[in-house]
Design a protein around this nucleic acid. Structure first.
Length: 320
DNA sequence: ACCTGTCAAGTCTGG
DNA sequence: CCAGACTTGACAGGT
């Protein structure tokens, strides 16, 4: 089975290459004319897209095919201050060339709308804001001309003191989402509320692929053994062009187990690989570590010493 | 050049 | 009922 490694949003190796530059709302309102505000936002966005292309070139040069785009590509895109800013038309060309490069090189791209995107909130305004945020992410991929294999990874949401009702609300609100957005959404187990078992159940009912986060499972598992779920998690991806996706990170330390460590521990990584190798399925692993691509390449280097695997290129391995 | 408090957004906890 | 934590990179304003 082939295992490809990827990383999140930004490089710790490239200097001055942030794809997430922004301006604060309070600073933007200091600019008097609407036109000048939008032009400030536009130039930041262009810089972010330019740096994203640099990241793509860097990734391609080092065989990294799995990558998550930052949610901050277009500054304040869903903020009321930018409501009438037509970023889509202005950036369409630049986004299209990113998409073209990504497809040409077989990149697997995703995005991870942040924790404010909650499809199971009981509050209408939260649902509306969440839909806006999902539409924003969807538009980015649309401008890049990517299909629904470019996924939006989200969590189920809050517990609102009643998990059962909260899951029910997720199902109802998810069903109300536009179909093109629905087909892009995948669900991930979280580190506090919805376990692998919870999310897997929901994914089966709603026909949604499931991203397994091994670190979150470690924090939130109700005593479940993860290997009992591998077969079912894998099969949620069977209709998809890409193999199952797994998030891997090491806990920062004993005191702060939910935070991500700088690097991924090779023993920790291999203990997961050794559990899943019997299932003989290709997988893509998103390395979630503070050192980003630095952590990915460090892990690849550490893996050279592991005899039971074969190094295929700078960012993928073969597990026998 | 470097440091620190703050940031658009929601939920949950603890006082 | 309200303030603060949660998590994160980057800004903004200070030294």
């Amino acid at each position: 089975m082939k295992v490809r490694l990827g990383y999140v949003a930004m490089s710790s190796m490239l200097q001055d290459c942030s794809p997430s530059k922004t301006v604060t709302a309070s600073n933007l309102v200091k600019i008097d004319s609407q036109e000048a505000r939008y032009s400030r936002l536009l130039s930041l966005a262009r810089e972010n897209l330019h740096n994203t292309m640099r990241l793509f070139l860097h990734n391609q040069a080092h065989d990294v095919k799995v990558f998550r785009l930052t949610s901050k590509l277009i500054p304040l895109a869903t903020h009321p201050l930018a409501e009438d800013w037509n970023w889509y038309d202005q950036l369409q060309e630049q986004l299209a060339s990113l998409g073209e490069y990504a497809r040409k090189n077989g990149f697997r791209l995703s995005a991870h709308p942040d924790h404010y995107t909650l499809l199971n909130s009981p509050r209408d305004e939260v649902i509306a804001a969440s839909l806006r945020d999902l539409e924003y992410h969807h538009q980015i991929f649309q401008a890049m001309k990517m299909d629904s294999s470019a996924k939006l990874v989200i969590h189920v949401g809050g517990s609102y003191k009643n998990k059962k009702e909260s899951v029910q609300r997720f199902k109802e609100n998810f069903a109300l989402m536009p179909a093109d957005i629905r087909s892009q959404i995948v669900l991930e187990n979280d580190d506090k509320i919805f376990t692998v078992a919870d999310v897997l159940d929901l994914c089966y009912q709603m026909n949604i692929p499931m991203v397994l986060d091994i670190h979150h499972h470690w924090c939130n598992n109700q005593g479940d053994n993860i290997s009992d779920y591998f077969a079912d998690i894998i099969s949620t991806w069977k209709q998809e062009p890409f193999p199952p996706k797994v998030h891997v990170s090491s806990p920062r330390n004993k005191k702060n187990i939910r935070a991500h460590a700088d690097y991924v521990d090779v023993e920790f990584f291999m203990s997961f690989i050794n559990q899943i190798r019997d299932y003989n399925t290709d997988i893509d692993i998103m390395i979630e570590a503070k050192q980003k691509d630095g952590a990915l390449f460090q892990l690849m280097n550490d893996l050279k010493k592991v005899r039971s695997i074969k190094i295929l290129d700078e960012a993928s391995i073969l597990v026998g």
